[in-house]
Each structure stands twice: as structure tokens, then as C-alpha cells.
């Protein structure tokens, strides 16, 4: 009797075709050849290590440092701005220096904080690439880097915000900030009502990543 290899594969736990036992399709192994730029990255990295300019460990530490940044850092800045009027003023005047005093160094770049109020709503984009305040928010979400968001939010911001579930009244002015050069931006969302007397730690929990990009509001307390 001929052996039906195809069916057999589907039934064994080691099969890499069909559906997994959790009901999801198996993902292909990444066996494709390296692209030109992947080869280039490896070549440059190996050269820098051979020449003693950097080390494998330093590269890994840098990746680790980037992975450990998260929107929780930005939320600390927002909560402090809500609670400390002198800090808020310094933040709006010079966000690079004000956030550095909290230990968030943006390196060679500079930061601008834009504040949402009853009459103004700010939203951030980088139409040319994917500039993002990584030192305060960590890595950007995929949608932030995609052409759909980048091209549409500058032309129809209210429609895009509505798709995020944020419908703004007509008397609120929308200000879109296109990060075209050396500045990075963070939105300071409006402080929700009913948050008087909350601690910094409690306020931080109300500040989402999306609220600091400007596609959401800060969360109202329960």
C-alpha cells in the first residue's frame, strides 16, 4: 500500500506544514538568501569589530538598551508635567533639557513637547521615514512606519484619528507635526477630569503610548 506522506505529515507533531496544534498556520523558516543591505550590515559590523572600534558585547548592550525603553518612560514625563507646573513650563519651553533632568537623554537629537488643550489636539508623524521619540517611547508601532498612516494623517487627520476611535469636535484645532528634520516630538495629552489628588504612579497608568503620539486621549480613571 503506497505511503501517503502528505497526510502523514499533517498528523505528526514535527510537521512544518498545515496547521499547528494551536490552530495557527506554521511560519516558514527564514531560509531565503540575505539581501544586499543585510550583507552590508554584517560586513560593516564585522569590520568595526575586527578594527577594535566596537565589540559584539557593546552591540548587544545597545540592542538591549533600545529594547528596554518603553512608553512607561514617556508616561513619567507626562505625569510630572500634569503635577508640577514649573516642570510643565520648562518642558514646553525646552523639552530636551527638561527630560534630560529626569534622566532621559535624547543624544544628538532634540525634543519638542506639544500640549493638548480644550481647543488644540496634536498628532505626530514622520512622512519621510519613521522618526519617533524612541528615547521616551521605545520602538515605534508598525502602523507608525507604514505608508498608509504617514501619507493619510497629514491630509485627513480627523478621518485617521476616527479610525483609532478618536472623534474630535469641530471646535478643536488639529495640529499635525511632521518630523522632517532634527526634532522629535511628544504629545502631552490633556489631563483627564477626576484625577485630582492622584499620585504620580497612578497618573502614569493613564498615559498610553498612543496618547503620546496623539492618536488617543489619556485614559479616564476608573
Amino acid at each position: 500500500m503506497p505511503h501517503d506522506h502528505h497526510d502523514h505529515d499533517h498528523d505528526t507533531p514535527h510537521s512544518h506544514t498545515g496547521m499547528s496544534s494551536s490552530g495557527h498556520p506554521y511560519r516558514q523558516d527564514q531560509d531565503e538568501p540575505l539581501t544586499y543591505w543585510q550583507n552590508m550590515e554584517i560586513a560593516v559590523r564585522e569590520l568595526l569589530i575586527e578594527k577594535g572600534i566596537t565589540t559584539e558585547l557593546e552591540v548587544m548592550r545597545q540592542i538591549d538598551q533600545m529594547d528596554n525603553r518603553s512608553p512607561a518612560d514617556g508616561a513619567k514625563v507626562v505625569a510630572r508635567a500634569w503635577s508640577d507646573t514649573a516642570f510643565r513650563a520648562r518642558l514646553l519651553e525646552d523639552a530636551t533639557t527638561a527630560t534630560r533632568e529626569m534622566g532621559f537623554d535624547i543624544g544628538a537629537l532634540q525634543l519638542i513637547a506639544v500640549e493638548n488643550t480644550d481647543s488644540v489636539h496634536n498628532v505626530i508623524v514622520c512622512t519621510l521615514c519613521s522618526c519617533y521619540p524612541r528615547n521616551l517611547l521605545g520602538l515605534p508601532p508598525d502602523w507608525y512606519k507604514q505608508r498608509a498612516y504617514r501619507s493619510r494623517v497629514v491630509k485627513a487627520p480627523r478621518k485617521v484619528l476616527a479610525e483609532f476611535g478618536l472623534v474630535l469636535p469641530d471646535d478643536v484645532t488639529v495640529r499635525v507635526h511632521d518630523s522632517t528634520a532634527d526634532m522629535r516630538y511628544i504629545v502631552i495629552p490633556a489631563r483627564p477630569a477626576g484625577t485630582e489628588g492622584l499620585s504620580l504612579a497612578e497618573l502614569e497608568k493613564l498615559v498610553s503610548r498612543d496618547s503620546m503620539i496623539g492618536v488617543a486621549l489619556a485614559t479616564a480613571p476608573e
Binding site: V154, K155, A156, R158, R175, H177, D178, A181
Partner: peptide, 18 residues
Amino acid sequence: VWGEAAENPDDTLDAEIF
């Protein structure tokens, strides 16, 4: 920026230009 096609003519767009 968008003329007649503007979604809301009084909304604004800020960019950094050399």
C-alpha cells in the same frame, strides 16, 4: 497645503524646513 480638498481648512501642519 490641500486647497479645496482640505478636510478642515483651519487645521494646521507644522514641519521643519532648512
